[in-house]
Amino acid sequence: NNDALSPAIRRLLAEHNLDASAIKGTGVGGRLTREDVEKHLAKA
């Protein structure tokens, strides 16, 4: 659900052409954090 993404996370996802649903969020309520996105990028 993109409504739960902060603007910074949306921008980071867009810059790397990532789909938020492909990344498991570890923030409050399962929200994506910058660390989640960076860890996903490091794996790729």
Results as ranks from 00 to 15, higher is better:
residue 1 N to L: 09
residue 1 N to P: 10
residue 1 N to H: 11
residue 2 N to A: 10
residue 2 N to I: 14
residue 2 N to M: 11
residue 3 D to P: 12
residue 3 D to E: 12
residue 3 D to W: 00
residue 3 D to A: 08
residue 4 A to N: 15
residue 5 L to T: 07
residue 5 L to R: 04
residue 5 L to F: 05
residue 5 L to V: 11
residue 6 S to E: 13
residue 6 S to C: 05
residue 6 S to Q: 07
residue 7 P to M: 04
residue 7 P to N: 10
residue 7 P to T: 08
residue 8 A to E: 15
residue 8 A to Y: 05
residue 8 A to H: 13
residue 9 I to S: 03
residue 9 I to M: 12
residue 9 I to F: 06
residue 9 I to A: 05
residue 9 I to L: 14
residue 10 R to M: 03
residue 10 R to V: 15
residue 10 R to F: 01
residue 10 R to P: 03
residue 10 R to A: 13
residue 10 R to H: 05
residue 10 R to Q: 12
residue 10 R to G: 11
residue 11 R to P: 01
residue 11 R to G: 14
residue 11 R to K: 13
residue 12 L to T: 09
residue 12 L to P: 02
residue 12 L to C: 09
residue 13 L to E: 02
residue 13 L to K: 00
residue 13 L to Q: 00
residue 13 L to I: 07
residue 14 A to M: 07
residue 14 A to P: 02
residue 14 A to R: 08
residue 14 A to G: 13
residue 14 A to E: 15
residue 15 E to A: 07
residue 15 E to D: 11
residue 16 H to E: 05
residue 17 N to G: 15
residue 17 N to I: 04
residue 17 N to Q: 10
residue 17 N to E: 09
residue 17 N to A: 08
residue 17 N to S: 11
residue 18 L to N: 01
residue 18 L to S: 03
residue 18 L to P: 00
residue 18 L to I: 15
residue 18 L to K: 01
residue 18 L to G: 02
residue 18 L to V: 10
residue 18 L to D: 02
residue 19 D to H: 08
residue 19 D to F: 02
residue 19 D to K: 09
residue 19 D to W: 02
residue 20 A to S: 09
residue 20 A to V: 13
residue 20 A to N: 04
residue 21 S to R: 10
residue 21 S to A: 12
residue 21 S to T: 10
residue 21 S to E: 10
residue 22 A to G: 09
residue 22 A to P: 03
residue 22 A to Q: 15
residue 23 I to P: 01
residue 23 I to A: 01
residue 24 K to Q: 12
residue 24 K to G: 06
residue 24 K to V: 14
residue 24 K to T: 10
residue 24 K to S: 10
residue 24 K to L: 11
residue 25 G to F: 00
residue 25 G to N: 03
residue 25 G to M: 03
residue 26 T to M: 04
residue 26 T to V: 03
residue 26 T to N: 05
residue 26 T to Q: 04
residue 26 T to H: 05
residue 26 T to S: 12
residue 27 G to L: 03
residue 27 G to W: 00
residue 27 G to I: 03
residue 27 G to C: 01
residue 28 V to N: 10
residue 28 V to G: 08
residue 29 G to K: 08
residue 29 G to H: 09
residue 30 G to I: 02
residue 30 G to W: 00
residue 30 G to A: 05
residue 30 G to S: 05
residue 30 G to E: 05
residue 31 R to K: 14
residue 32 L to H: 02
residue 32 L to R: 03
residue 33 T to M: 07
residue 33 T to P: 00
residue 33 T to S: 06
residue 33 T to G: 02
residue 33 T to D: 02
residue 33 T to A: 03
residue 33 T to L: 09
residue 34 R to K: 15
residue 34 R to P: 11
residue 34 R to T: 13
residue 34 R to H: 12
residue 34 R to A: 13
residue 35 E to F: 08
residue 35 E to L: 10
residue 35 E to Q: 12
residue 36 D to P: 00
residue 37 V to T: 02
residue 37 V to P: 00
residue 37 V to H: 00
residue 37 V to W: 03
residue 38 E to Q: 09
residue 38 E to L: 15
residue 39 K to P: 05
residue 39 K to T: 11
residue 39 K to I: 11
residue 39 K to C: 05
residue 39 K to N: 13
residue 40 H to C: 05
residue 41 L to P: 01
residue 41 L to G: 02
residue 41 L to T: 04
residue 41 L to R: 01
residue 41 L to I: 15
residue 41 L to E: 02
residue 42 A to K: 13
residue 42 A to C: 06
residue 42 A to N: 13
residue 43 K to I: 12
residue 43 K to N: 13
residue 43 K to T: 13
residue 44 A to H: 13
residue 44 A to N: 13
residue 44 A to P: 10
residue 44 A to C: 07
